[in-house]
Design a protein around this nucleic acid. Structure first.
Lengths: 203, 203
DNA sequence: CGCACAGAGTGCGTGCCACGCAACATCGGA
DNA sequence: TCCGATGTTGCGTGGCACGCACTCTGTGCG
């Protein structure tokens, strides 16, 4: 069967998600100030694998904890690709991103964990930044620009990823009752253009 | 004398820079694929301090290596503050950033090291992201917006930081002869607006 | 129908590193 | 000249990433 390879891959992905989920859960239990108390051994045990196996999937605690966010980011490119081709760029981006980040409203505790723990800052930024490459590709495809010559796709992708990150931070401020989707829309509309510059980037 | 405290601070900063410089130099010597060969002991020795002292200044090799970039980022806020108050926001940002990143043209080897070494990615992103907070503050001050309610300053700051990062990456592609200043200008003009939205972020 | 093999999980051992602690050096101030 | 604050250092410890070799499972092929 050619399901075989799929089954292997499914199992691999399942354990990967199990480890990531366990890591995030344990981190949340200890809170942002007790990250050092989360031992690799505990994560592995909670996920039902050996510490050595944990290390085959992630090369650090931080990477495991932030893996869910990384997974989200990797999907942003596809989400934009899935938008109808006639839609203006800004609307397409806003729709794609809000869809992706609202289908399940994100886990506030998890997001707070990875965004307000100093030791996790580097990995969290890596996770958010992972959206940039596929996003830039999707933007280039949609606008017909050449990523090798024009900076527009990459710069816009970086701006969008940054806006998502800032929106998340704003969503987490205590006493904020606004929905994440609304904040996202506000943040994105600060940076996304309807179209690339006519004469590419020559002002 | 109250120069005393200043003298102490100067010495501290001097050793910090010595360690950071040594770390970056040694990392460049080994190249992006030999980061593991750069031992903490070597960095400390090259900087003329003990390994324990090195650890009083930086909590990881990566942080030491990226410290110069972090220092640059911290100055972006002041650079924008220094621009004349009447200048339009987009021109002010472009002028401030290009000034800061062109006074000495950046060290291409160093930038390549921190931007094309996977193990350094997290710290490099942290370093670039450090520009955002002071930048957002400066933008808010200049536009008279309230950072607590409006997302515009923070989002724009993130977009600018992202544009700088993308410009750096583009500058490093082999065979590129364009000056960094020119690339920066192109990248920034993709994202910086002349003014915040009139009705703040309500489209 | 069985066999060989690829791929995943695991245990062990090693080297490196971050950091707490306490003693030491240095330098400014009374 | 002596004191106190601040930076520096050596030592010891706990934890972690990872190479290596072995085992087990189940897949595809003969």
């Amino acid at each position: 069967m050619n399901d075989a390879r799929d089954l292997r891959a499914r199992n691999k992905q399942a354990t990967q998600e199990a480890i990531g989920h366990a890591a995030l859960r344990l981190a949340i239990e200890q809170g942002p100030h007790g990250l050092a108390l989360v031992r690799v051994h505990d994560i592995a045990t909670a996920a039902g694998v050996s510490p050595r196996t944990y290390n085959n999937y992630f090369s650090s605690k931080e990477e495991a904890i932030c893996s869910f966010q990384a997974g989200q980011s990797k999907r942003v490119g596809e989400a934009l690709h899935a938008r109808p081709a006639g839609e203006p760029l800004d609307q397409a981006i806003i729709a794609a991103v809000t869809e992706l980040y609202t289908d399940p409203e994100p886990d506030k505790a998890g997001l707070r964990m990875i965004m307000s723990t100093p030791e996790l800052e580097g990995e969290a930024l890596k996770a958010f930044t992972m959206a940039e490459a596929p996003l830039a590709e999707a933007i280039a495809a949609r606008t017909g620009t050449d990523p090798g010559r024009d900076l527009f796709p990459a710069v816009t992708a970086a701006a969008v990823a940054g806006a998502i990150r800032v929106a998340g931070r704003h969503w987490l401020v205590p006493g904020n009752t606004e929905s994440f989707a609304a904040i996202l829309r506000r943040a994105l509309s600060c940076v996304v253009p309807a179209a690339p510059p006519e004469a590419p980037q020559d002002r």
